[in-house]
Amino acid sequence: MFRDLTLGQYYPVDSVIHRLDARTKLLMTLIHLISLFVARDFLAFGFSAVVLALWIILSKVPFGYIARGIKPILFLLGISIFFNIFWTKGEVIWALGPISVTKEGLIQAAWMVTRLVLLIFGTSLLTYTTSPTQLTAGLEQGLYFLRYIKVPVHEIAMMMTIALRFLPILTQETNKIIMAQKARGADFESGNIVKRAKALVPILVPLFVSAFRRASDLAMAMEARCYHGGDNRTRMKPLKFTRADYLAFSLAVLYFVIVILI
């Protein structure tokens, strides 16, 4: 059931954007995020939206998929719209008893929504066009310089890789354990909070035991394959900047300058 569960949501097609180096895309996403907070008026947001739309078209990812990213934050979006509209002081447009809607409130809410939506779209584009493996490699190689200030970049990247690999396995395992305990008459659905929390023990203990067993198995398997940390390691798929990367990066910088100037 959870066979395809991964963090992120890679959309595997071949496009110019997909072929870009993960580091380039990470950097571009960062520029995009900063630009959203630098932008001061709707003209800048409009420009940002148009540029993002062009990137999305280039990426060949259907727009519907990108829009899907909004779903999990709809609730958050609704709440912030609500508070912005009704709780911002200013020029009253419409009022009913203690409730009033102000012009500033409406603008604030629109501002907020645009910013959040563009933010989500931009980061979704990154995860749709970059596989988790590339992303991890990009982070590792892009942030490698941090090693000089004793940040264990390689180790963190390795942890991410392993987490990505084992998350679906542990999800499957959780389902199996739930089924097995249900078969022994366990009840997860009724009772108050305390009872329900207690009902989790028969799931969590086996899950932890299994996770530790897997971890120790994996550690042994990695040692057997001569793993010894990040030093003196070569790469099967080293990241390489190509001309397309430099071009994309220049365009992103140009975009950023324009946003500031607007």
Binding site: S131, T161, L164, R165, R213, R214, D217, L218, M220, A221
Partner: peptide
């Protein structure tokens, strides 16, 4: 060395 559990010795995706 190859171990018993196939899942627990594959690292990459």
């Amino acid at each position: 060395m190859v171990f018993q559990n196939p899942d627990n010795q594959i690292i990459a995706q």
